[in-house]
């Protein structure tokens, strides 16, 4: 008997009102997929295809219009507090609190979880050190480079030891070299701790490097292609998958903004 999926989207639809108040549009329509525990899934798609809406549904920040989102038997929106400390999010921009030092920013989640302040500080220092930020504990965000700030935000997400990591294009605003280094660090940390992760990106190579599985979305957020990045897929089969993803993405018309 196969193990029950850790994350399950069942026929999920999310409808929003149009900004001008005239009618509605579906950002996600009857989306269904499963993610196993410890799996890293990369979600790829063009801008406006509903990746971020799917992300917010999974984070429990918005409620599905219909269908069900389920993480280990619980609904992230309805059972919001059940997921305290269980989900860590790395956003596209670092979202550091400007009034907190790097150390205090990493401690934020731990503070919210009511961890002992001394223990929290130790954990935060350890994570900053792991991400190469020793010596910058007392720096305010404005004194850090973009790459350093994103490292702090990764440390903040990992520090609470979440079961699920969610990343919304976390390296898209960084230069290629910094993004490559951070991506490698991120993957090492995810694999080392056996986390389940959902990684949103619009870079094909990044999706193929990061994901155990790549889901390609078409608008409104439905799976147009799926590839498992195991065995031969990372080596000889890589080019074929890349070509297929490119083909699937090019089939979609450019987004007409609502």
């Amino acid at each position: 008997m196969s193990e029950a999926p850790f994350i399950r989207f069942t026929e999920v639809t999310k409808v929003f009102s149009r900004p001008d108040g005239k009618g509605t549009f579906a950002a996600v329509e009857r989306l269904s997929f499963d993610i196993a525990k410890g799996e890293v899934v990369a979600v790829l798609g063009k801008t406006g295809c509903g990746k971020s809406t799917m992300f917010n549904l999974l984070a429990g920040l918005i409620e599905p219009t219909s269908g069900a989102v389920n993480i280990a038997g619980h609904a992230p929106f309805d059972e919001f507090n059940h997921f305290r400390g269980k989900i860590g999010i790395v956003f596209q921009n670092d979202r550091l609190m400007p009034w907190r030092t790097a150390l205090d920013n990493v401690m934020l989640g731990l503070q919210i979880l009511d961890k002992d302040p001394k223990e929290s500080e130790e954990i935060a220092r350890r994570w900053l050190a792991r991400l190469g930020l020793s010596g910058h504990e007392n720096d305010y965000p404005h004194a850090l480079s973009g790459g350093m700030r994103q490292r702090v935000s990764i440390a903040r997400a990992f520090a609470v030891e979440p079961e699920i990591l969610m990343c919304d294009e976390p390296f898209s605003s960084l230069d290629e070299m910094t993004a490559r280094d951070l991506r490698a660090e991120f993957l090492r940390l995810v694999k080392q701790d056996g986390k389940t992760a959902v990684f949103i990106t619009h870079h094909i190579n990044e999706a193929m490097d990061v994901g155990d599985r790549v889901l390609v979305f078409h608008r409104p957020a439905r799976i147009a292609y799926e590839a498992r990045m195991d065995g031969d897929a990372r080596n000889a089969g890589r080019e074929a998958i890349q070509a297929e993803i490119l083909k699937v993405l090019s089939l979609e018309a450019p987004v007409a903004h609502p």
Partner: peptide, 24 residues
């Protein structure tokens, strides 16, 4: 809104949200 969503992702109580985000 970004900071609000980021803070909410940790599921804070109303009291802690007030202390760590609203007051500053």
């Amino acid at each position: 809104k970004d900071l609000f969503e980021m803070t909410m992702s940790f599921r804070p109580s109303a009291r802690i949200l007030f202390r760590v985000l609203i007051v500053p």
